[in-house]
Amino acid sequence: MRRFHYLAPRRLDEALSLLTPDAVPLAGGTDLFLRMERRQTQPDAVVDLKRIPDMDRIEPSDGGLRIGALAPMESLAASSLIVNGYRALAESARVVGSIQTRNRATIGGNLANASPAADTATPLLALGATAEAGRVDGSRELPLEQLFLGPGRTALESGELLTAVRIPAMPGRTGSSFQRCVRTAMDIAVVNCAAFVKLDEDGAVEDARIALGAVGPTPLRALSAESCLQGRRFDADAAAEAAECAAHDARPIDDVRASADYRKDMVRVLTRRAVENAFQRARGEA
């Protein structure tokens, strides 16, 4: 590993001022440490964010939820706010790596790394989350879709830091579900999928969001699958059609983990299962 300066600011504004172009922020470190060890990242300075108070808080905000970027996966999985209100997110946080990893890996890191397979990205996309980006002279909020540009690339500008994620309120008759497909139990997703539905009083879809992971350069929304569900009541055909649309929306590649063909097949299977599950939950059945 190349030598570097280790900085551990105690205030956010101090941290932001240290984030020069040659510096990288350090959260859980489960990805960054390895990239530095392999010299894929060779920063002059590492800015450890863990000494900043309250950056890991999970709290109600504007009727929804604000999750500090430093909240580790294990806290997400254990948070009653998330488990009760945003099940797809809790389900995804529960399967990110081992307990060791979940104790360290943060939601901010999981998103800012911009891995196409990031497990928390798909439920957050499906739940309509936004990212809060802080900088020395203020902060801005951007829809999560706009955060991801490509593998390892985000819309964060130099000097900007992902400080929190916000998820809107979940009113009644909504449901979400996270599904993923792996090779062995401890694995990075071969494909992951999250679905969110909001039903009207008659049980028809008022709003649906479906997100897919590991099937494109970024986690992505399956827009045609979403519109296919719009206004429909649940039945097997609706789920199957949405699944078929999602398979068209996916843009997978072949790699060591799976072929593009298999990934498309799994998009079909997982989307159908996620949609069915989200429907059941929206109707209070699961």
Binding site: T184, A185, M186, D187, R257
Partner: peptide
């Protein structure tokens, strides 16, 4: 039987790490 294989592309191993060389964990 189910998950392990060293695979090669152009003579280079594709998966020389424990993330992609899949041995069984307790859950498997």
């Amino acid at each position: 039987a189910l998950s392990e294989a060293c695979t090669f592309t152009d003579g280079k191993m594709d998966n020389p790490n424990l993330l992609d060389y899949k041995i069984f964990s307790a859950l498997d």
